[in-house]
């Protein structure tokens, strides 16, 4: 018989899958706001927030939701080479294969030669990894109003600088994603588990347990996923060692949460 903890553990594998998207009130409002912004004639939309706040998930969800009705292209991993970047966009958006080096001028020529019915939307994740020169080219591209860019940035001092210097006058909409509150975190955990039919494990997350998890992860979704994955892995390890007395039935002892936090590095022990 498959352990319930194994299913629960797999729920918290850190993957960016739109199917795993959890509908939370505040997040839903933000998502709707982003969707509306895309419909507006904006040059560029900046989505920023700390790592693990769900930026990538947002872009994935947006891509999945809008792809049937709109020309939308998602680039999860940054294309660091400038020529490759232009070649990829030319191929995906304008269906133009280009052999050899493609520079910015040549790419603009392609963009101007191809007249599209609707403005394509390009979603660029981890934009902070793009070079400053390439970011400047992206700005120039967005100024032509032939391509709409939605970029995500990690909110750090460096990224703030990028935002200020390159997009200050050009970005029309900025959306910040924040860590979850305690209530949101509880809903997030329970919804995630119940979505995978792990009702028993969903019920053992009491207010106190979630409070402890929130304290350790500060409501960060990625850290929460990591912590809960390790927590269920811990229960599985006890189960495999036939130490059933250690496995909780109605609530999770703080000790196990702390042990999982030590294992994941959230606690420095």
């Amino acid at each position: 018989m498959k352990s319930i903890y194994l299913n629960s553990k797999n729920v918290f594998i850190d993957t960016v899958n739109s199917k795993d998207y959890i509908q939370l009130d505040r997040v839903s409002i933000i998502y709707q706001s982003l969707k509306n912004s895309i419909q507006k004639p904006l040059k560029m939309i900046l989505l920023y927030g700390k790592p693990g706040t769900g930026k990538s998930m947002f872009l994935t969800k947006l891509h999945n939701d809008l792809s049937p009705s709109q020309n939308i292209y998602l680039y999860k991993t940054p294309i660091l080479d400038e020529s490759e970047f232009y070649k990829l966009l030319a191929q995906d958006i304008f269906e133009t294969k280009y052999s050899g080096e493609l520079n910015f001028t040549q790419f603009i020529k392609i963009v101007n030669s191809k007249k599209l019915e609707s403005i394509p939307v390009v979603l660029l994740d981890e934009a902070q990894l793009y070079s400053q020169a390439l970011m400047e080219k992206i700005r120039l591209l967005s100024d032509t109003r032939t391509i709409k860019f939605v970029i995500t940035l990690h909110k750090t001092q460096k990224e703030d600088l990028i935002a200020k210097e390159h997009f200050k006058t050009r970005i029309w909409e900025t959306i910040e994603l924040k860590n979850s509150s305690k209530t949101e975190l509880k809903i997030y955990i329970q919804k995630k588990l119940m979505k995978a039919n792990c009702f028993d494990t969903a019920n053992i997350f009491t207010e106190k347990t979630v409070h402890k998890i929130h304290k350790l992860t500060r409501g960060n979704y990625r850290d929460t996923n990591k912590l809960l994955y390790t927590l269920f892995d811990l229960f599985l390890s006890y189960e495999e060692r036939n130490r059933f007395d250690k496995i909780p039935t109605n609530k999770i002892p703080t000790k196990y949460i702390e042990m999982a936090a030590i294992q994941t590095g959230l606690i420095d022990a």
């Binding site: 892995d233 599985l236 390890s237 006890y238």
Partner: peptide, 8 residues
Amino acid sequence: MLNIPDLE
């Protein structure tokens, strides 16, 4: 599988 004794 986690190293339980070490973790404890």
